[in-house]
């Protein structure tokens, strides 16, 4: 039991390596500041497919193939595929797994999926159960809107605190050995319910979960905010980000300039009318496997705490008046 530290944190004896990544972003995301740091920007929201669901799947397949190509590996050389997305029964991931033909474990953590996948993959690799694990996630604005909200062409007014679901897919290949940034620790979050009910303000619902996981990581490991170049939450957006900072300040953890949120990095919020920022599985996915991976390669970062957040409600649970339960998982990535 030597690998567990404190209450919820796992430290890896042989930290797994992110060997290569593949990232695909939608056309609207391609107009934002992240465009330079993804592999492919689509020109068509449907990606040449018949439905938006097929489009999401095709992006995920493309992201996975890119990650494998960048590592010069075939799918037969990968031991496990861990993936999840937002659609009912995680169809994007499962159908992608059918195409790739890699032994597959489907995971669901809503928008926290990328961190959940990285944590699980790291445990599997450090545990000696596999040599190479592919982690992937995707989201699509049109498929998420239709499942969680209204038909895409429905003329409703958006709330000023609403976030915009990112169209994109991201995949990362993790290995037991190799060159690249390493996952040195992971803090698995608990489900937090702070009484939020508004599915249009998920940032506020998720902020306490992020705060709790960040606080727990510091307590378990003895590290503090200054130990990191960057502490990056998943998709809290503007309101959730402020709330998270305030909740942590009450716990006497004061985050400085090195605190940021993936939801604030995808779009140019001055020019793109996205209100509080970005959300969706691809938010943390694209930032982690697109921007962070490149920044680590360029030597610009050496220690990052990624805290991806997820809202675990469903349209059914919301309509039946339930609160929105949320989760956040943290992974520590080091050069």
């Amino acid at each position: 039991m030597g690998k567990k530290t404190g209450k919820q944190t796992f430290q890896f004896a042989t930290p797994p390596v992110i060997i290569a990544t593949g990232t695909v972003a939608g056309p609207f995301e391609g107009q934002g500041p992240l465009a330079e740091e993804v592999d492919v920007v689509l020109s068509d929201l449907r990606n040449g497919e018949n439905s938006f669901e097929q489009a999401e799947r095709s992006m995920l397949i493309q992201a996975c193939r890119l990650a494998l190509d960048h590592a010069s590996r075939g799918s037969a050389e990968v031991d496990l595929f861990l993936a999840g997305d937002l659609l009912n029964q995680i169809i994007s991931s499962s159908f992608t797994a059918a195409t790739l033909g890699i032994p597959y474990l489907g995971i669901y953590g809503a928008c926290s999926t990328v961190a959940e996948g990285l944590a699980l993959a790291s445990m599997i690799l450090d545990g000696g159960f596999a040599g190479a694990v592919l982690v992937a996630t995707s989201s699509h604005n049109a498929t998420a809107e239709r499942q969680y909200r209204y038909p895409t062409e429905y003329g409703g007014q958006r709330r000023p605190y609403q976030q915009w679901t990112v169209t994109g897919a991201a995949a990362g290949l993790l290995g037991y050995t190799g060159q690249g940034p390493r996952i040195t620790a992971a803090t698995v979050g608990k489900v937090v319910d702070m009484g939020c009910k508004d599915p249009l303000n998920l940032g506020a619902a998720m902020a306490p979960a992020a705060a709790e996981t960040i606080a727990c990581h510091f307590e378990d490991t003895g590290w503090d905010p200054d130990s990191f170049d960057l502490i990056l939450t998943g998709d809290l957006g503007e309101i959730g980000f402020k709330l998270c900072r305030e909740v942590l300040a009450e716990k006497n953890i004061h985050l400085g300039e090195n605190f940021s949120d993936c939801g604030l990095l995808i779009y140019d919020r001055e020019k793109q009318d996205v209100h509080a920022g970005a959300s969706g599985c691809a938010t943390a996915g694209l930032v982690t496997f697109g921007r962070l991976f490149r920044q680590f390669q360029r030597g610009e970062l050496s220690r990052v705490l990624l805290v991806a957040t997820g809202a675990l409600h469903s349209p059914t649970s919301f309509m039946q008046g339930e609160n929105i339960p949320c989760i956040a998982h943290a992974v520590r990535i080091e050069a």
């Binding site: 000023p160 605190y161 939020c196 303000n201 506020a204 309101i239 402020k242 709330l243 305030e246 909740v247």
Partner: peptide
């Protein structure tokens, strides 16, 4: 707290 930050 949420009410405080939520823009109207």
């Amino acid at each position: 707290k949420v009410k405080k930050y939520e823009p109207k």
